[in-house]
Amino acid sequence: MLSFVVRRLLLLVPVLAGLVVLLFAWLRALPGDPARALLGQRATPASIAQVNAAYGFDQPLPVQFVTYVGKLLRGDLGSSSATGQPVLQSFLDRFPATIELALAALVFAVALGVPLGYAAARRAGGALDSLLVGGSLLGVTIPVFFLAYLLKIVFSQWLPLLPTSGRQDPRIDATHVTGFFVLDGLLTREWDASLDALVHLVLPGIALGTIPLAIIVRITRASVLEVLGEDHVRTARAKGLPRGLVSRRHVLRNALLPVVTTIGLQTGLLFSGAVLTESVFAINGIGSYLFQAISQLDYAVLQGFILFIALTYALVNLVVDLLYGVIDPRVRLS
């Protein structure tokens, strides 16, 4: 198990190295000039030269690359050419909000999607099944921003039960340790702060989690239906095991493999959706920062962001593979 993890992590090194090279070349190949994007149309040649010198853009590309990699190896992602802030610090300030939102959406999707998919399969062809299949078809087609606006309008105009903006009520004087507000509240034992952060996540979580929810319902349903037809389920019933035990031990567990796979595949979906959701619910995450960086061709920020996403992808898939091993012993051996 441990050697498997180590091997997988080592495998990450060449992947990330390749990505760094590609990314560097690709960003430099994009049309446009960062100094000009930063200073605007009326920039003088002198001020452009000044910016270029400050950020090393005047150096030959190979030199820039070596400098960049050297810094990267020391954990330095460079500074934003737009704000001058160190990229790493900005990420640490903003990513927790985005990740917290993505996790909330994922928990919502899994916690609701697996039981619903299971229930649909158990009553395949029935009214509940048709409802869920139809609902999930609708769910995958609703654009994130549309649902986000809808929820925001409904809950701010007519049903003021849940907060529709921000991450926490500013009147709560919460201590922030990690930047994950729910976690911070738990760590500092400020329960009300934790709860408030959680409540703030409900609507954005639903908006972002609806597409994954719909996908998980469908995958779980299909998977459970398949397992229900397998011989070993008949064996379990032939043993006289009560229905609940058959479901838990002999149906759900086997049916979870494809579900876990889809969860891994949805990381990208969650991140891109999170950027949209953040803007609707006024969450100060990575989204607005990224928009700015794109419009200003902020090399350091964009490089750092994509690297981070790649790393997250790799880690999520590692976790998925480990989960695979936990669920299915046949995977563990090979």
Binding site: E230, D231, H232, R234, T235, A236, R237, A238, K239, G240, L241, P242, R249, H250, R253, N254, I327, D328, P329, R330
Partner: peptide, 22 residues
């Protein structure tokens, strides 16, 4: 359910598929 497995038990044809792999 109380009869199956206790009073009447069954062995199936294909041992490759009739045991739960996980």
């Amino acid at each position: 359910e109380g009869v199956r497995g206790r009073e009447v038990a069954m062995v199936f044809q294909d041992p490759m598929t009739s045991l739960n792999p996980v």
